[in-house]
Amino acid sequence: MSRPTDRPFSFHPPLAGAFAALLLALGVLAGCTLGTPAAVADIRYDLGPAAPAASPGPLPPYKVLDVSAPQVLNSDGVIYRLSYADNQRTATYANSHWTMPPAQLLTQRLRAALSSHGTVLTGGDGVHAPVLKVDLEQFEQVFDGQSESHGALTARATLMLDGKVLGQQTFIARAPASTADAAGGARALAAASDDFVSQLVAWLGMTPVVAQQ
């Protein structure tokens, strides 16, 4: 069943079947009246223009690997969690999607930010340089109440050189959503992404790129 407004909502179980039947009947009626099936919009979101990250000064070249993510985040679905009702359940909006999986969006965001502070390489470049690996663990809109939500991003960054770990840090970024729908969630997650990137750039500026013995 599609949700035209793309707002999370819940049914009282005894009424769910009747409500679904009513929606089906209305859909059939609309199709008969207009002569064509009702069209459902598919809205696509990206992270929008990046907010400038605070400069820690010039950074050395980094090999920035593609951001990795668990299987649940390897799709274009916009995930939300109704934490006020059941903190262990997640769902995705019916008619709203990312332009690409969140890990790919974050890879683009991170490389663009670091390129303004120094040279950005990929894992396949044959240059001796520290390697930055980011594991995305959470990227979702969390509802604290029916009309209150925030974008939640959690990621772990590991900096390596010659097979040795120079540093590792888990980052948590949160940003409030202005509206309780997919659009609000997308904006909040974009803001959380910018916060994460700023935290990561600052951390890199404080992490010496010298192999530990």
Score class of each variant (00 low, 15 high):
D135K: 15
D135Q: 14
H128I: 11
E140Q: 14
A173F: 10
L132N: 05
L153Y: 02
G123R: 12
S149D: 00
D181E: 02
T170M: 05
E140I: 07
M160H: 01
L132S: 03
A177N: 01
K164A: 15
A152Y: 08
L114W: 02
L153Q: 04
A180K: 04
A152F: 13
G145I: 00
G126Q: 15
F171S: 13
H150I: 09
A183G: 08
G118Q: 05
D162S: 06
F139W: 13
Q168F: 01
A155C: 10
G151V: 09
P176G: 11
A186W: 02
A186N: 02
A157W: 05
A183P: 00
E140A: 12
Q141R: 06
G151L: 04
A183S: 07
T170Y: 09
H117L: 11
K133F: 01
A173H: 03
G163A: 14
G185V: 07
M160R: 04
Q168G: 10
I172V: 14
L121N: 13
I172Y: 08
P176S: 10
E148M: 12
R174V: 15
Q146C: 00
D181R: 08
Q146G: 03
L114N: 04
T179R: 09
V120M: 09
G145Y: 02
F171W: 08
S147M: 09
Q146H: 06
R156Q: 15
V127C: 07
A152T: 06
A113C: 08
D135F: 15
A129I: 06
K164F: 10
A157V: 07
G184V: 14
H117Q: 14
